[in-house]
């Protein structure tokens, strides 16, 4: 019967369409797997480090993903430090102007620097904060969320106390890259195993920074581009005009970011991997409004240096002493207490 045949045909086509949909869904859901390691001409670690220091990538834009598994305890008032993945979109004109967007599900934090003024805009409370920057200064303060900056800083600081090697290649954000590995020399007392930096083979800028702790195969901290495009950017991206209905504030002068009180410059004990930074923490009443509350964290410890609370994470420890000092570093507790006793 003709209708029956056509019916069976359509039933089969229906099944086919449904299966195609299911397969397609699988393809959409498949995480973009790491490509095969690209073939690149060998490069010596010294040459790679030098070329990173001299790299000038020019204008670019991209998406940066920050994967935080540091295991910081939940700090009231600072939920952004907890474990998790965060995303940022960055634009740079390659000459000091920049834009960073930190999107959340229902809002966005935007940082724009036009070379002389840095704006930060928060869509949730619609406030814009203005701050003058000297032209020499780098793009808006995005903290660790900039793989290029943080990787270049890490290389600079750790070179002398590390074994530097090139460990194969990788594909990051669709671009071939060298894997530069900084491992602490045996004399360094640190919680870290190594820092891996994927360096773009052509532009020689760091595309990804990975921090690995001793005794764990998974990165404790990773920040890298998931998508990057080099090329001229729309100049309108690097200007900011507060929209109507915005509260405009001036950033507190002299302090960066957390508004560190004057006269509380931290002292640095040691160098390289086992650097310990000792600072004064702001007294409770002068703590920045809405700042993290640190008084209930960690476990109590004491010693010849006094007593305080010890906070440990996968890659770092910190002691908050009862007399208001803070010692922190990527080191075991003992190194911290030694530094505090000095």
């Amino acid at each position: 019967m003709a209708v029956g045949t056509a019916g069976r045909l359509w039933a089969r086509i229906g099944t086919g369409v449904a299966i195609a949909g299911a397969v397609g869904l699988g393809l959409v859901a498949m995480p973009a797997g790491a490509g095969a390691a690209p073939e690149l001409p060998p490069v010596s670690p010294e040459d790679l480090v030098t070329s990173v220091a001299q790299a000038n990538p020019g204008p670019l834009n991209g998406t940066v993903e920050l994967d935080n598994a540091l295991g910081l305890p939940a700090i009231p008032g600072a939920p952004e430090l907890a474990n998790g993945t965060k995303e940022a979109r960055v634009w740079s004109d390659g000459a000091g102007k920049g834009r960073v967007a930190l999107p959340s599900d229902q809002g966005e934090k935007t940082l724009v620097s036009d070379g002389t003024t840095a704006w930060s805009y928060d869509s949730t409370d619609r406030t814009a904060t203005k701050k003058a920057v000297t032209p020499g200064e780098h793009r808006p303060d995005a903290g660790a969320a900039d793989p290029t900056r943080s990787a270049a800083d890490a290389i600079e600081r750790l070179r002398t106390t590390s074994t530097v090697s090139v460990d194969g290649t990788a594909e990051v954000a669709g671009r071939p890259a060298y894997e530069l590995v900084l491992a602490p020399k045996p004399t360094e007392r640190t919680l870290l195993r190594e820092v891996r930096i994927a360096v773009d083979s052509e532009k020689r800028i760091p595309l990804r920074l990975t921090v690995l702790a001793t005794g764990s195969a998974d990165p404790a901290f990773e920040v890298g581009f998931t998508d990057i495009t080099f090329g001229p950017q729309d100049p309108a991206l690097f200007t900011f005009t507060p929209p109507p209905g915005t509260t405009v504030k001036d950033a507190p002068q002299g302090g960066d970011h957390g508004g560190r009180p004057a006269g509380a410059e931290p002292t640095v004990v040691g160098d390289g991997w086992d650097t310990v930074v000792i600072g004064k923490r702001p007294a409770q009443e002068q703590a920045p409004q809405g700042g993290p509350d640190l008084s209930q964290l960690g476990t109590p410890v004491s010693g010849s240096w006094g007593s305080g609370r010890l906070v440990t994470t996968a890659v770092a420890s910190a002691i908050l002493t009862d007399d208001g000092r803070v010692a922190a570093g990527a080191v075991p507790e003992q190194v911290l207490t030694e530094a505090l006793s000095k």
């Binding site: 359509w10 229906g14 369409v17 449904a18 299966i19 949909g21 397609g24 959409v28």
Partner: peptide, 22 residues
Amino acid sequence: SSTLRALCYTAIGIGFTLWRMQ
């Protein structure tokens, strides 16, 4: 990406409906 995902769900739903209605 959510539109792609929706397309796949649409294909599954319509394909199944076709098969069933025959």
